[in-house]
Amino acid sequence: MFLDRVAWMVAGALVLGGCGGGGGGGASDAESGFTDGETESGTDGSQTNPTDPTDPTDPTDPTGDTDDPVAEQAPSARPRVKFKTAERYAADLSNALSIPADSLCSELDAFDCVSVHKVALGEVDAFGLRLLEPLESTPLTAPIAVDRIGLTACGERAARDHADPQSATSFVEVAGVDAPDASAREAVVARLYRQLLLREARDAERAAVAAMYEDLPEAGRSQTWSQMACFVVATSTEALFY
């Protein structure tokens, strides 16, 4: 078989799980990855399990960061969340990483990433494709496109900082350093959270991203870690929705 049937069925079920049952006038919201995900109070909260250690809504904070007041964030009763879409996301990345938009990311060194992936990432193209409305549902390729943009933009920032540590803007403490220690890496993570998410990183977040260094190949590890530390923050769900 071409691909594992079970994997696809599970994937389909996961997405269907987001449909909220469908039916009625609001049924189209079920798949509308780029539009408001408004749901009625209580509907979603009832699907969480406060005793489940993997449940992100568990107030006991599975990160173990019990002193962090953010850990007790309550589920929104009416979670109105929108996808940033390609242009907004690219603008945020450009600003956060201090890379001009026109050099943020290209495909094959010839095509602007944002233009290539803009329809998949929720933009319209009235004059080129007669696409007057964003796609109703999130394409399968959208998360992959985001990864490509994030990987490239972060790779660009990492390359610039490591090539010229004196002018580094994101990876100041590790730029040009072969084997940066944990404190240096955590300092970088803290800056990435401020630059990309406009908030302070929690202790567990700083530690987790800094620790990823140990899982990377030794060759070029410092720069690779820089790129991937940026990547995990820049492509996090928090960075993509507002």
């Binding site: 987001g18 309550a74 929104s76 979670p79 996808f83 929705f241």
Partner: peptide, 19 residues
């Protein structure tokens, strides 16, 4: 484990994305 997820994991748009 993010606070964002704690607040908004139930939004359809987020659930479709993570799915």
């Amino acid at each position: 484990n993010s606070a964002f997820n704690q607040a908004f994991a139930g939004a359809d748009a987020v659930r479709a994305w993570t799915g």
